[in-house]
Design a protein around this nucleic acid. Structure first.
Lengths: 239, 239
DNA sequence: ATTACTAAAACCCGAGTAG
DNA sequence: TCTACTCGGGTTTTAGTAA
């Protein structure tokens, strides 16, 4: 895993050319594309597209067989490695971005559900702490919300099972382990959980946080204060 | 989530400029960098770096405060979205690449362990099938091995617990659910499991596969035949 | 129909330097 | 010091075509 490789300015166009080829590839092993089509794909002329393919071949990022009218392109190991490296770098970048939200009024309807006995006992047991019977509402802007969802895709979650009482059904609740801390005081991290990210309230991107202390008092928060959510990547197995 | 956005040829340099800024950012909210340093980062002159920053500002990918000698740069929502989109695209590309390996001689030492009673009963129970008492060895080239590891990072796994008998200790074994099928016959997928990816044998990238049938016969495989591993992304919670 | 060469046009970079 | 303008030179693109 050498760290010396970087795409240099005179290779930007080639990198994007490779990227577009990979997109076209899908699950197949090789691509049939002529330089005119490739030009359309890249928004450049046929001539430039042709030259790009020559460049990629010289770089050993692709290999090809020109067979009369047909040009069959394969991505080489090196080419795949180039893509993989960029993926890893972007992943690292996105992982390092902190998710921030603003303290929002109200306790969130989640707060009401937490206190219900059928849920509460499970929260205690499965989260490993005895939660305050209410939630902290954090309002995330589009990009923080989008990033949070992206990060949660690959994350393990805890399921609080739904149940029935005489009147109604209570659905499953999904939680994700996290820490929260105020932007102003990064030292003071509190173990917490994000509740049911799926449901959006009031058309805003509200995320409800569950923790042992009453966070508004504990962190001395006012509406609009910024709070950071730090996800916990569990390493535990499936079963 | 508009899908209309694509980085165009006249924006490649700007995209990479943004990428390098994001790398520099880390967990901070803003970057203090002058155009000379930025030039070094991008391997271009101070003048070009300066122009790049102007471009990024016009694109609304960054915002900045020039405060006499100091230039403070923040990535905008749009800028973050640009990065996020590329991340998603690359993720999609890598997900769609099939992992292939060549059938390799021998049964792998894993085959010996599978048959041991302390393990075997767990395999049966936790994998949901009664495995053949031997493994299929697949030899992956560097890039397939690298990709496999990358994909497994975010994946759930099944732990087969270690145990002790009178003579020795048997360690934990990690398995990942997957399907396997021969490259020649994509229709014929068999439920299988990848054993303990961590250990490399003989300096090669050997991956051992566990399945109910004796795969060499079932697929009529010879050494060197190519077999595809398709990972199964479980949606199950942690507990 | 292809790919890809040549040559002119368009574009970009960086040295010099202003503010 | 810094950013960023101008402009000459170099590079890249594309139109026209050859193969």
């Amino acid at each position: 895993m050498s760290k010396d490789f970087e795409v240099a300015p005179d290779n930007y166009a080639n990198w994007f050319a490779l990227y577009h080829l990979c997109q076209k590839l899908g699950k197949r092993k090789e691509i049939h594309i002529n330089s005119t089509e490739f030009g359309v794909l890249l928004s450049v002329s046929q001539q430039t597209a042709s030259r790009r393919i020559q460049n990629l071949e010289e770089l050993n990022w692709i290999s090809r067989n020109i067979d009369g009218k047909q040009q069959i392109i394969e991505i080489t190991e090196l080419g795949t490695e180039i893509m993989l490296r960029m993926y890893r770098m972007l992943k690292k970048i996105l992982d390092s971005i902190l998710i921030a939200g603003e303290v929002s009024e109200g306790m969130g309807e989640g707060g009401y559900y937490v206190a219900i006995e059928g849920y509460y006992n499970q929260f205690k047991e499965k989260l490993g702490f005895e939660p305050y019977k209410g939630t902290l509402n954090l309002d995330l802007d589009e990009i923080n919300y989008s990033l949070l969802r992206e990060k949660l895709i690959d994350m393990r979650f805890v399921t609080i099972s739904g149940f029935k009482d005489e009147n109604r059904n209570f659905g499953d609740v999904k939680c994700h382990h996290c820490y929260v801390f105020p932007l102003k005081d990064k030292r003071n991290k509190v173990k917490a959980a994000i509740l049911n990210i799926d449901r959006t309230h009031h058309g805003k991107n509200i995320v409800e946080i569950l923790a042992e202390p009453f966070l508004r008092d504990y962190f001395n928060l006012k509406d609009g204060d910024r709070v950071i959510i730090e996800l916990i990547y569990e390493d535990k197995p499936l079963s």
